[in-house]
């Protein structure tokens, strides 16, 4: 029973595992870059979720063929295209913030930064 669930829905298990790893990186790590890496893992695991939910077994890419065929769901792909752009933009903002922080404080360690900004 449990195994059935795992086999039928392993995609979700993978994504939540990845997501938890990313979450830990964001809140557990002290290095700002590692935080950003965690953030990226966190966001991309969500994209995995969307895209895997769009899968239809035996489906082909949603580009219309002459003969009738089974297509995978196009909508999540569209959404994720948008979301990827959002994630990349956030990452860009985050990285430029890190650059500025490094210029100001000379370190990327959160504890040291807190100490310095006292």
């Amino acid at each position: 029973m449990v195994l059935d669930i795992i086999f039928a829905k392993y995609n979700y298990i993978i994504y939540i595992t990845l997501m938890t790893i990313g979450f830990y990186g964001m809140i557990g790590k002290r290095n700002l870059i590692k935080k950003l890496i965690g953030m990226s893992i966190f966001q991309y695991s969500i994209f995995l979720f969307y895209v895997s939910a769009a899968d239809v077994s035996g489906g082909t890419a949603p580009i219309l063929l002459k003969e009738p065929a089974v297509y995978v769901n196009p909508l999540p792909h569209v959404l994720i295209l948008t979301a990827i752009v959002v994630a990349v933009s956030t990452l860009a903002v985050g990285l430029s913030l890190v650059i500025r922080i490094y210029k100001e404080f000379g370190t990327l360690d959160e504890d040291k930064i807190i100490e310095l900004s006292r």
Partner: peptide, 16 residues
């Protein structure tokens, strides 16, 4: 929430 989500590749999932 996982067990309740539709199976991978299920053509009858509401999303599809």
């Amino acid at each position: 929430g996982v067990p309740d989500l539709p199976d991978l590749g299920d053509p009858d999932a509401p999303a599809n």
